[in-house]
C-alpha cells in the first residue's frame, strides 16, 4: 500500500478571527497553526493503520510556504514515513489540487487521502478535484475505510443516512469522524521526525480560478433576550411574532 495523505495548515479552532488591509487579508501572525484536524485525526491515522496491517508507506504532502514544514514534521512525529512540500502559496483550491495531482500522477499511489474540509475555508473540494484531474475514483465524507487487494470498502455519509460501497484502487477518499482515533506523538516519534526525509518541490505551472476579494465579520448578536422559566408562553410568542420562526 502506497498512501499519500494531503495535509493542510489551519488556525487552531479557538483562534479569534480578524482581518486587516481594508478587510482583504486574514491576520495570521498571532495565530496558533495546527494540522487541519480532519487531516491529522482521520486521514493520517487511518493511513498509518492501513500501513501497519498491510505494509507499504505513508507520504504526507502539503502545498505551502516554508513555515508549513512544522506541520509536516508533526505528521512525521505521528508516524508518516516521508513528506513533500510543494513550494507555493496555496492561492485557491484548483491551484492546490492541480499541484498535488501533478505530483501524484506518476508515483503509483494506491490511495490519496484528504480531510473532509479545511476548517478555515471549509471548501471540501481538494479531494474531488484531484480525483477529476487524475481520473481516479473518488468517495467523499468517508467514515470507515478498509482495503483488500485492489478493492477498498468505504462507509460514507449520504443525504439522509450512510452507505457502504466498494471501489477499485487507485482512489481518492476524503475522511471524517469515525475513520480512526487521534494519536498523540510519543518521544520516539518526535525524535525520529527530525531526520525523516522532507522533499521540497518547485510548483508546477498552474493558475487560480477564484480569488477572495474581501472578508467580513458577522454582525454581533444584539444581545440575548432573557425570559423567565415561569413564562415559557412568552418565548413561544416571541418566536412566533418577533423572530417569525414558528
Amino acid at each position: 500500500m502506497k498512501i499519500l495523505v494531503c495535509i493542510s495548515k489551519a488556525p487552531d479552532t479557538t483562534t479569534k478571527i480578524g482581518f486587516t488591509n481594508n478587510n482583504t487579508e486574514f491576520i495570521g501572525d498571532k495565530v496558533t497553526w495546527i494540522i487541519n484536524p480532519y487531516d491529522e485525526w482521520y486521514a493520517l491515522v487511518r493511513a498509518l493503520e492501513l500501513k501497519e496491517t498491510l505494509g507499504g508507506s505513508v507520504t504526507v504532502i502539503n502545498v505551502g510556504l516554508v513555515d508549513n514544514e512544522a506541520i509536516l514534521r508533526k505528521a512525521f512525529a505521528i508516524g508518516a514515513d516521508d513528506g513533500v512540500r510543494i513550494d507555493a502559496n496555496p492561492t485557491d483550491a484548483y491551484f492546490v489540487a492541480n499541484q498535488i495531482a501533478e505530483y501524484a500522477k506518476d508515483k503509483g499511489f494506491d490511495l490519496i487521502l484528504t480531510g473532509k474540509e479545511t476548517i478555515d475555508y471549509n471548501g471540501s473540494q481538494i479531494g474531488g478535484m484531484i480525483a477529476a484531474l487524475n481520473d481516479v475514483n473518488y468517495v467523499s465524507l468517508a467514515t470507515k475505510l478498509d482495503v483488500a487487494g485492489t478493492e477498498a470498502t468505504v462507509e460514507c455519509e449520504m443525504e439522509g443516512g450512510s452507505e457502504i460501497v466498494t471501489l477499485q484502487l487507485p482512489a481518492v477518499i476524503s475522511c471524517q469522524k469515525g475513520m480512526a482515533e487521534a494519536r498523540i506523538p510519543n518521544m520516539k516519534g518526535i525524535m525520529a521526525a527530525r531526520t525523516k526525509p522532507l522533499q521540497v518541490i518547485v510548483a508546477a505551472a498552474s493558475e487560480s480560478l477564484t480569488e477572495i476579494v474581501k472578508y467580513e465579520l458577522p454582525a454581533e448578536k444584539t444581545g440575548c433576550k432573557m425570559i423567565s422559566p415561569d413564562n415559557v408562553d412568552e418565548l413561544v410568542r416571541l418566536l412566533h411574532e418577533e423572530a417569525k420562526v414558528i
Partner: peptide, 11 residues
C-alpha cells in the same frame, strides 16, 4: 468561512 466566524467574497 472559518467555521461560521467570518464571511469571504469569492470572485
Amino acid at each position: 468561512v472559518f467555521s461560521g466566524k467570518a464571511f469571504a467574497y469569492f470572485n
